[in-house]
Computed example of a mutant assay.
Amino acid sequence: MGDTTTDFTEITYRVTDRIATVTLNRPEARNGYTVRMADELAAAFDRADRDPEVRVVVLTGEGKDFSVGADLSQGGFDFDPDTGPDAAWQEPAGRCSKRIFTMDKPVIAALHGSAVGGGLTITLSADYRLAAADSRFGFVFTRRGIYPEGASAWFLPRLVGMGRAMDWMISGRLFDAAEAEQAGLVHRVHDPAGLLDAAYALAADLAANTAPVSVAVTRQLLYRMSALDSPAPVHEVDSKLIASIGTNPDAAEGVLSFLQKRRPRFTLSPDKDLPDFLPWSH
């Protein structure tokens, strides 16, 4: 079954075989990032997160580049330049990266061509970044006299360490897929022709073999608790989670399917079955 939504103008959204594909769709502008695109991306990820038929999201770009970053030629930001933004205004890249951060479902970014500036920071909260071998990356802000956005100063050091984050962000230099992979920014590098196939193969494996609630809890455990200064509060949550296994039908199914050497049929759903004691759910 496939479902393509035409509600968007600067991205496309399609659901096929439990995988939602979100595609940046301004190839004539090398997928330059706009305020409209930011809001459409946030809405698309929200739709995928709330759709019980979606298990995984693949994020990619139409044309030869993933995204060359902010395109302010479309009218600038969504506030009056004379009066400035109000206190609640949120810069566009973070509208996407923060929505991915809160996802209950894994997100796989498939990066090709140029992925620079906001065209890279929006992907830092994805679970996976796969790259074409000819990709080029850059946090180019200092070379434009502007500043890192998308909460990238929080995400990037957690992915590659403070030293590499400093190098890339202070210099603003471009770097290739091999350096990105070596540093841990991207998980794997693929031949450009096989990049999307690799992304969909990974998505299909996650959809077929992982439990939706287990994935939702695990990605949030990592994101929200790995930076604490003690393991004690993490272990408190772990203990409650493990104690709940006895009444968890997915846990029983996971063991049974393993013993019977068959694909699991998990029944719990993140939209209604997340544990109510998770500290970030209040």
Score class of each variant (00 low, 15 high):
residue 72 L to Y: 04
residue 35 V to L: 04
residue 223 Y to E: 06
residue 107 V to W: 05
residue 215 V to M: 01
residue 247 T to V: 14
residue 126 A to N: 08
residue 244 S to L: 09
residue 216 A to K: 07
residue 201 A to S: 15
residue 61 G to T: 09
residue 92 P to S: 13
residue 250 D to Q: 10
residue 205 D to Q: 10
residue 165 A to E: 00
residue 197 D to E: 13
residue 213 V to G: 00
residue 235 H to M: 14
residue 228 L to Y: 04
residue 270 P to D: 07
residue 3 D to Y: 15
residue 192 P to L: 07
residue 99 R to A: 10
residue 158 R to F: 02
residue 48 A to R: 03
residue 138 G to S: 10
residue 45 F to L: 02
residue 71 D to R: 09
residue 145 G to P: 06
residue 135 S to T: 15
residue 176 D to F: 07
residue 83 T to W: 01
residue 94 G to T: 12
residue 76 G to Q: 08
residue 266 F to V: 05
residue 4 T to R: 11
residue 139 F to L: 14
residue 132 A to E: 01
residue 262 R to A: 03
residue 122 I to M: 08
residue 228 L to R: 11
residue 120 L to S: 12
residue 195 L to H: 03
residue 122 I to Q: 09
residue 102 T to W: 01
residue 104 D to H: 15
residue 22 V to D: 00
residue 43 A to G: 02
residue 49 D to S: 06
residue 194 G to D: 14
residue 16 T to Y: 01
residue 219 R to W: 00
residue 136 R to E: 05
residue 71 D to F: 07
residue 51 D to T: 04
residue 53 E to A: 12
residue 262 R to T: 10
residue 31 N to S: 06
residue 238 D to Q: 12
residue 31 N to K: 03
residue 185 L to F: 01
residue 215 V to C: 00
residue 244 S to C: 08
residue 114 S to W: 13
residue 87 A to F: 07
residue 57 V to W: 00
residue 260 Q to T: 12
residue 188 R to P: 00
residue 85 P to I: 13
residue 132 A to Y: 02
residue 140 V to N: 05
residue 237 V to F: 03
residue 62 E to F: 08
residue 176 D to V: 12
residue 222 L to Q: 06
residue 249 P to M: 08
residue 176 D to H: 12
residue 11 I to W: 02
residue 200 Y to D: 04
residue 36 R to Y: 04
residue 178 A to E: 13
residue 193 A to M: 07
residue 164 R to S: 05
residue 21 T to H: 00
residue 24 L to D: 00
residue 193 A to P: 02
residue 18 R to T: 14
residue 217 V to K: 03
residue 211 A to S: 10
residue 211 A to Q: 03
residue 240 K to L: 15
residue 83 T to M: 00
residue 215 V to L: 01
residue 90 Q to D: 05
residue 237 V to E: 02
residue 195 L to G: 05
residue 230 S to Q: 04
residue 214 S to V: 08
residue 178 A to W: 02
residue 278 L to Q: 03
residue 144 R to S: 03
residue 176 D to S: 10
residue 272 K to G: 09
residue 173 R to I: 11
residue 174 L to N: 11
residue 130 L to K: 10
residue 37 M to I: 02
residue 156 L to C: 08
residue 72 L to H: 04
residue 253 E to W: 10
residue 10 E to Q: 13
residue 129 R to F: 01
residue 194 G to M: 11
residue 193 A to D: 14
residue 115 A to E: 05
residue 150 G to P: 06
residue 108 I to P: 02
residue 36 R to C: 06
residue 223 Y to S: 10
residue 169 M to L: 07
residue 18 R to M: 00
residue 253 E to H: 13
residue 177 A to I: 09
residue 241 L to G: 11
residue 235 H to T: 12
residue 261 K to Q: 09
residue 104 D to A: 15
residue 81 P to S: 08
residue 189 V to L: 05
residue 128 Y to E: 00
residue 141 F to M: 10
residue 183 A to R: 05
residue 107 V to G: 02
residue 164 R to A: 14
residue 220 Q to V: 05
residue 142 T to I: 11
residue 163 G to H: 13
residue 173 R to E: 10
residue 245 I to G: 06
residue 268 L to S: 08
